[in-house]
Design a protein around this nucleic acid. Structure first.
Lengths: 300, 300
DNA sequence: CGTAAAACATCATATTTCATAATGTATTTG
DNA sequence: CAAATACATTATGAAATATGATGTTTTACG
């Protein structure tokens, strides 16, 4: 049989189940098929792509490089498939969903999430409130927004991690670093997780600093960076083409990573919000799951 | 039969053929199937998505809203399918591909193209040369790069249109417009299509102007805009969050659109370049074809 | 060692799916 | 109104696919 030009999404679904469960038999159980059927499906899948997806490892099978590559695509294709079906079903979400987001996230992490929602629920209207994390938290508690993205944690909320980003010392590309002068910091009013990280790290290493600019929001921080006023600690999401990163060669301390979470109020009964949350979560997990569970031979 | 949760890409392929040819029978011919088979496939497809994709229009069928929606997704899913298969086949492209691009394109149009190439041909190394269009043209003719993206046209080259963008008057968000003073222009040295558009339009409407800044590349133009030195004519790709657009309420003339083309040398024999070009082109057409051919009922 | 269990492969077979060919129905054309 | 057009329906046979039984290889364990 020649390699085909159109994959069978059912086979890909089985393929994913096999990779996730690390077993042909268990994948079969999950999908209500026999082990024999799974074996034959995987044989057909290999034929249709024309390359080996598995290799023998003892009495098990593990993924080849091509297999891991296909696994990523398969998740994407099925995520697209699910989106397409979701958005066609007549019970599609409609109404207004209010999302709160910090400025940097609104520029970087948010767009793909919005586009995903917009595609899955075309009749859903989105309202984005851009502001600072602590106030967003407050807005969420008060019900002024339905969900927020934030680096802050709040055990009274329900949420899941979207992404973990490194925090860097960021300055203008033109900024000239003076190793022995106090570090000119661009700060944001309390409370800010970045402010805290920066000051704690400098404190600990006894690095002198001065406040070069006090901003009340990220637009101000960006403007101050662009103007070359100094340095600020921020996740890589802030970084623009006219900026650069200072590191250990400039004697600046490493900073902890931050994790962006998507938060909603716990026990949210509004089914619109709940469904949208589940939608985002399931797509996020479908596409980014690689590495969260151990996968067959996915040791690289 | 209940609606399924996994679409059949073969059915989607037929669906696309039907939409493109506006006929069940012709779609069947294209795919070497009978008309009867096409009819049954489309019935199955409708059952599997659970909504009507077609409605009767005389003795023909036209797409419903849901149908048009699915059509877009179907093109995307098949583009993804083709990518996945391409990148798995062992004859995958490998080597170095040198792409020339203007600064604004490198920030906007280029990334999705690069990511597409990287996904389809993971063993291909990409080199990006960022520069100004006229020089890129020269680089391409001289063989210093393999393909370029440019707003300029050159009948001696082979290429196809990637995107058409409106050209706007762009300035800093803080820039204060003085209606009666000569318009402070941020210009780029000759030759530039934007420079030409701007000056011709101002000339024609007898709007006085002065040169506020002369840049030699886009980085300089951006810096001058951010510094609030004046106004420049550029496609929307340049627009950043700290900029805004001046329009007819400020008395500025409309400007012609520009079309970005992907160009290669004609009769390129280097099979790497040729294949990469075909890859980009076919994916581009698969996803963006909507509206180029007339589609069934795609009058909205 | 050697036997049992585990994990996937193979095979024969029954079932399901799907395309075809022939025919039917509705619509438009002249 | 007859012919032509465009899609629908039906019966049927061929191809694809799942199942259950059995085979092969590897590991576990006494």
């Amino acid at each position: 049989m020649p390699p085909s030009s159109t994959l069978d999404l059912e086979l890909l679904r089985t393929f994913i189940a096999v990779a996730d469960s690390q077993s042909f038999a268990e994948a079969g159980q999950q999908l209500a098929r026999t082990q024999s059927s799974v074996t034959q499906q995987m044989q057909r899948l290999e034929q249709s792509v024309g390359v080996a997806l598995f290799q023998k490892q003892g009495r098990q099978k593990q993924l080849t490089d091509a297999g891991r590559q296909l696994l990523r695509r398969a998740r994407e294709m099925l995520a697209l498939n699910d989106d397409a079906l979701n958005s066609l079903r007549e019970d599609g979400l409609s109404g207004v969903l209010r999302i709160g987001s910090p400025h940097d996230v609104a520029d970087t992490i948010l767009p793909p999430i919005l586009s995903h929602i917009a595609r899955s629920a075309p009749r859903l209207r989105l309202e984005i409130d851009v502001g600072r994390s602590p106030f967003l938290m407050e807005d969420l508690h008060r019900g002024r927004v339905d969900m927020i993205i934030s680096t802050r944690e709040d055990p009274t909320l329900e949420g899941f991690p979207l992404r973990t980003s490194p925090v860097w010392w960021i300055c203008s590309a033109q900024y000239l670093h003076m190793p022995h002068a106090p570090l000119p910091l661009i700060l944001i009013d309390e409370p800010s997780i970045y402010r805290r990280y920066a000051l704690e790290a400098l404190e600990q290493q006894r690095i002198p600093w001065r406040q070069a600019y006090l901003a009340s929001n990220l637009i101000g921080v960006k403007a101050a960076i662009r103007a070359g006023l100094g340095v600020t600690a921020r996740s890589m999401e802030l970084l623009g083409p006219d900026m650069r990163v200072l590191g250990e060669q400039e004697g600046l301390p490493r900073l902890p990573d931050v994790t962006y979470h998507l938060w909603i109020r716990p026990n949210t009964h509004n089914s619109l919000v709940r469904k949208a949350y589940d939608l985002i979560r399931s797509n996020h997990e479908a596409v980014y799951r690689s590495g969260r569970r151990k996968q067959i031979a996915d040791s690289g």
